[in-house]
């Protein structure tokens, strides 16, 4: 036993000295030692207690077991994550010692909508996506809008009078409102709030007509019957909300949500990237993790390095198109 520990330690030492560990076969399941060292800093762009933190607290203990690496969170909230992501893109060495949780759409909308924010996704190495929380349209339980068509028709009859809340400008709910308005050819009066909570609370209290949010956040209230879900912006109906139609099946091609995954600065070695992605994949396949995620209403949506990169690029393209069309309207109306 002692010799084995010794061997493992020596192997670890060797690996970190040489910078790679391909030749060092080991018996334990975790496979090779991680090339980025035995402690990885996870840069967090949001405050402790938020959605990103919840993901980190859930994933990282599993990942630490899986990879034999210690994960340490460093919180640098501000500018909707842009402070942390700018640092990740511009200042952090791509040695695999520092990675970050990256959220869509904020990761892209930050720099698309603000000239002062200068990083972009080409300066990052996407590693893997972990969860996607699909968008949902909710109304108060006593709302006159019984179904999605009621809401759309009301907006058609009286353009600009149906008030629709969202979690904030540049967020996924805000974008899905715009995309849906275009798809359905209607005009909503959008009301941005500071976060999801205030938005669905306002809908629940009848202060606004409807709220565009995410399933994971509003699910307990939908379950309890305080909010009524009119439609989800997913490809298919969700197992947790089998009676709620997708916007797609109602004839509106809107698939939206907020995704959270891990990324590193550009130039991360392919080896480190693969090791992290493989570790994350094994975590998401662990039944214990799946149960813990389900308990927290997190919708696992694993995408490996290539798929996640393509996803981010595709989303970026879509946001640029939408923003180009509406930017004058949004920034001009703020007076």
């Amino acid at each position: 036993m002692q010799t084995r520990i010794l061997a493992a330690t020596t192997a670890g030492l060797l690996a970190s000295v040489m910078g790679f560990s391909t030749a060092l076969a080991q018996e334990d399941q975790a496979g090779q030692d991680y090339v980025g060292g035995d402690e990885v800093t996870v840069l967090m762009g949001f405050k402790p207690g938020g959605g990103s933190d919840a993901l980190a607290q859930l994933v990282q203990p599993f990942l630490a077991d899986e990879m034999g690496v210690n994960f340490v969170n460093q919180y640098q909230p501000g500018a909707v994550g842009a402070i942390a992501w700018t640092r990740l893109a511009k200042q952090i060495e791509p040695d695999g010692e520092t990675i970050s949780i990256t959220n869509t759409p904020m990761l892209m909308t930050n720099y698309i909508m603000n000239e002062a924010i200068t990083y972009d996704i080409s300066e990052l190495t996407p590693i893997a996506n972990i969860v996607t929380d699909p968008g949902v349209v909710v109304v108060a339980k006593d709302s006159p809008y019984k179904n999605f068509d009621d809401l759309i028709n009301a907006a058609k009859e009286n353009p600009g009078t149906v008030t629709v809340g969202n979690s904030g400008v540049g967020g996924d709910d805000w974008f899905s409102t715009i995309i849906l308005s275009k798809e359905a050819g209607v005009e909503f009066q959008t009301v941005p709030f500071q976060g999801d909570g205030p938005s669905w609370t306002a809908a629940m209290g009848g202060k606004i007509d409807a709220s565009f949010n995410n399933v994971g956040i509003t699910y307990p209230q939908i379950e309890a019957g305080n909010l009524r879900a009119l439609a989800v912006f997913a490809e298919e109906r969700l197992p947790s909300l089998p009676d709620v139609p997708t916007a797609k099946e109602l004839g509106y091609d809107v698939v939206a949500g907020s995704s959270r995954g891990y990324s590193a600065p550009a130039g991360l070695s392919e080896e480190a990237r693969q090791q992290l992605a493989n570790g994350l994949q094994r975590v998401t396949e662990d039944p214990e993790f799946q149960k813990a995620a389900a308990d927290r209403a997190m919708n696992i949506d694993f995408m490996g390095p290539e798929k996640y990169t393509a996803y981010l690029q595709d989303q970026e393209q879509r946001f640029i198109e939408v923003w180009d069309e509406i930017k004058d309207e949004v920034q001009g109306s703020g007076s």
């Binding site: 842009a82 402070i83 904030g168 400008v169 540049g170 949004v330």
Partner: peptide, 20 residues
């Protein structure tokens, strides 16, 4: 900081740390 309804940065002089 950023205007709560339009997202336009106000009085930040391009300083990212003042966006929030």
């Amino acid at each position: 900081g950023m205007d709560p309804t339009t997202g336009t940065p106000r009085f930040t002089f391009g300083e990212l740390n003042l966006f929030s």
